[in-house]
Amino acid sequence: MKNYWWKILAILLLLYSIIMGLLGHVPALPIVHETIRNVYFHVPMWFTMFTLYIISVVYSIKYLSSSNPQHDLVAVESVNVGIVFCVFGLVSGMLWANFTWGDPWPNDPKLNGSAIATLMYLAYLVLRNALEEEQKRARISAIYNVFAFPIMIVLMYILPKTTDSLHPGSGGNSGFGQFDLDGSMKAVLYPASLGWILLGTWLLTLRFRIRKLEYQNDIRVD
């Protein structure tokens, strides 16, 4: 019970977000109508992706100071899971945008920023494939990861704030907090985000454990 309470918490929170996300009260707004409920599912994808990338960069820094191969495995697996969540976020956002903004890919800084950030992490994976030697691969990819991370923050958080955007909360648009007067949306969005972040971490630990098993197997065979 000690070790897996957070997994149960993740399932409960997500169940809550599915039920309350569909049944709960939302403000009636033009253009978005009922699709405002997508906030509960689309936005947490980005939170989860970002959390996973932070985990990855933290473990890359840890690897550089410790040279422990397990830290490298955590870093690469969290990038792998983070990319999955990034794809989910992009696809769900495109679907939503198609119905509310009339275009699956409006020229929006947040969209372009997240697409470029995806390229950055795909480049990280390509770099790993280009390197044969294990320690060298771990070290050099960790260096690239740490180098790319602050630029990703600039890309996704600072740039959209200074340019026009369709997304709420940037470029002079008002945030969602303005419509959500009684806080009923916050009461779903925050638990949903936490639930998805926990689920992402869970997937990360699963992939890490598989990788570790493979790694130990390789050592044993050698």
Partner: peptide, 24 residues
């Protein structure tokens, strides 16, 4: 009905995840 379907789907996935976890 929609809520129930989604909840069942999600619970199914969650149970699947748990079995994978235990297998590992």
């Amino acid at each position: 009905v929609v809520v129930a379907v989604l909840a069942v789907l999600f619970l199914g996935l969650a149970i699947y995840l748990i079995t994978i976890d235990r297998k590992i």
